[in-house]
Simulated assay, not measured.
Amino acid sequence: MGRALRRAPRRGSAGFTLIEVIVALVLMGVMTVMAWRAVSALTGSREHNEAAMDRAETLQTLMRQWELDLREVQDSTLVPALSFDGATLRLTRRRETGLQLISWQLREGRLSRWESTPATGREALQEAWFRSQQLSAEELRALPGLNGIAGWQMYFFRGNGWSNAQSSDDVAQSPSGSASDATGQRAAQRRLVPTGVRMRLQFADDSGYRGELIREVPVESTGS
């Protein structure tokens, strides 16, 4: 009998075909892109929330300072205790070592706060008043402040109601009725310190804030 020939068994495939490799790579690429987008969205959301919290904290800090300044107004009779010219609100604030001139100024979309060193004499206080009118844009940008302000209005509570802070309702005739003092420097009118201040802030569209902010603060002025 002839020897029977035995056929060797066929081996199974030990690798991947080219199509399988391409499909796997495509799936891995899609999953990587989806994962990257998810991480990017999460990071962007976190950064957005942190930025919003920083803006809110900055606004709250400035408003607390605003209220503190107005609650400590003191009339020196040398310069206006509280005045507003449309761009700048100036006030004199009592401190332990003297009177301090505070200036809140809106310029180039930024609300900035400047303060002088406490003054103990007439000349020092008047010098601080003039200094507050000479602040440059560079100086204001270096001061504590808030960006993204489109505009603001100020109202004073005088008598029995609110009126525009730039109106003439805050003046009253002096009892003497004289036109000036011996040096011709003191007017026959004196400004009355309002008993309240209302501020309206309008935010720019790209500021991160919405609408406008209205804040009312009572003023309890004392004489020097």
Rank of each mutant, 00 (worst) to 15 (best):
G12Q: 02
S13A: 12
L18Q: 03
L18H: 02
L18T: 08
E20R: 04
E20Q: 04
V21G: 00
I22T: 14
A24L: 05
A24T: 02
L25S: 01
G29P: 03
T32Y: 09
V33M: 13
L42D: 11
T43L: 06
R46F: 05
A51C: 00
A52I: 04
A52E: 12
M53I: 10
M53A: 15
A56R: 13
A56H: 08
E57K: 11
L59H: 10
L62G: 00
M63F: 02
W66L: 02
V73C: 03
V73T: 05
D75T: 11
S76P: 00
T77M: 13
P80W: 07
S83Q: 06
D85L: 03
L89I: 14
R95K: 14
Q100D: 10
L101M: 15
S103K: 07
W104G: 00
L106H: 04
R107A: 01
G109Q: 06
L111K: 03
S112C: 08
S112N: 06
W114G: 05
T117C: 00
P118E: 12
A119N: 02
A119P: 00
G121Y: 10
A124V: 07
Q126D: 09
A128V: 01
W129Q: 09
R131T: 13
R131G: 05
Q134L: 01
E138T: 03
L140C: 04
L143I: 07
N147E: 14
I149G: 01
G151N: 15
Y155N: 01
F156H: 09
F156W: 11
G159Q: 08
G161A: 01
W162T: 02
W162H: 02
N164D: 12
N164R: 08
A165W: 06
S167E: 04
G177A: 14
S178C: 12
A179K: 07
S180C: 12
S180K: 13
R186L: 14
Q189V: 13
Q189F: 09
R190T: 11
R191I: 06
R191M: 05
L192R: 15
L192W: 10
V193P: 01
T195E: 10
G196R: 05
G196T: 06
M199S: 02
M199C: 04
M199L: 13
L201A: 09
Q202K: 12
S207W: 02
R210I: 11
R210M: 08
G211K: 11
G211S: 08
I214M: 13
V217L: 09
E220K: 14
G223N: 14
S224I: 10
S224Q: 07
